[in-house]
């Protein structure tokens, strides 16, 4: 039973990170119909930007700020202006393929400029345990959960409680009408790209101390977040959050109770079941779209 509790906590911590990445996924889809297959690499890159900043002498806190800012410029602004905007007019599919190419490009560039070997990455949360209901729970797991929850709460507050958030939702739901009533749709779309870049940089900061900084570490994350987004509902932020947590827990339980070899298959099987019986995702709403 104690094992079960540990697995749940570890699963929730990993799941919270998946959720951050999945939320970004759904945001991009809602506002610009971008399916970003480079999302995993987007999580891998900020850690290397932070490492680079530390390498030239910046203290860790400054490296975090620089890393997040650089990520927002590269993975938010430049990604939208240089890749999404020119490809978008050719449709969803060419853009999706272009993001796959981008994923390969980012991976190879990191391998080229840093190394193919893994690098250590400092943790923002100190190591150690605290006791919860008689179980020792690591501060790192709790730290990851807390930061991820804060980010998600902040995002939902922004989306639901502020005028800016309402404009973003309007731009996502019906850009034509939004434009008519004076919402700066283009700026709102750019904002979602910046938010996505911020979320992946945050995820990078949280996951890299555990997974190590390595050029290939985005592959697993990207896939998990993609599955989480579909399972939860591709068009709902809360769906992506639920999907992320669910996949994190499911992955850990599968590794423990099924087998390490088949752990990667279990979320995929779950995905198929969801698609068969609830194609809009657990919390998603059915939508019809003419593409």
């Amino acid at each position: 039973m104690s094992n079960m509790f540990d697995l749940l906590v570890a699963g929730l911590a990993t799941g919270a990170i998946y959720a951050l990445v999945a939320v970004g996924f759904t945001l991009l889809w809602q506002t610009s119909q971008t399916i970003n297959f480079a999302q995993g690499e987007f999580v891998m890159l900020p850690a290397f930007l932070m490492l680079a900043a530390m390498h030239v002498g910046a203290p860790f806190w400054l490296a975090i700020i620089l890393g997040i800012l650089l990520s927002m410029i590269l993975l938010g602004l430049a990604f939208k202006l240089l890749l999404v905007d020119p490809m978008m007019r050719h449709g969803v599919l060419p853009l999706a393929i272009a993001t796959m190419a981008l994923a390969i490009g980012i991976k190879e560039a990191v391998k080229q400029f840093f190394s193919a070997e893994a690098s250590p990455f400092p943790s923002i949360v100190p190591t150690g345990d605290i006791s919860i209901l008689g179980h020792a729970v690591s501060l790192q797991s709790i730290g990851v959960l807390v930061v991820a929850i804060l980010a998600v709460v902040g995002l939902t507050t922004l989306l639901n409680r502020t005028s800016l958030g309402h404009q973003m939702q309007a731009a996502a739901q019906n850009p034509t009408v939004a434009r008519i009533i004076g919402v700066p749709v283009e700026r709102m779309i750019l904002l979602t790209f910046l938010i996505n870049a911020f979320l992946v940089a945050l995820a990078s900061l949280l996951i890299t101390p555990i997974y190590l900084a390595k050029f290939s570490s985005g592959e697993v994350l990207g896939q998990a977040a993609f599955i989480a987004a579909i399972v939860g509902g591709f068009n709902q932020v809360r769906g992506a959050i639920a999907g992320g947590l669910l996949i994190g827990v499911l992955d850990n339980l599968a590794a423990s109770y099924v087998s390490t070899q088949y752990r990667a298959a279990v979320p995929l099987i779950f995905l198929i079941v969801v698609i068969l019986f609830r194609p809009q995702g657990l919390l998603g709403r059915a939508e019809e779209r003419t593409v």
Partner: peptide, 20 residues
């Protein structure tokens, strides 16, 4: 007797089993 995969990133479940 725990087998793990090459390139595995997450060892939470394996360590959970060791603990158990």
């Amino acid at each position: 007797d725990l087998s793990t995969e090459a390139g595995q990133a997450d060892f939470a479940a394996d360590v959970g089993k060791i603990k158990a």
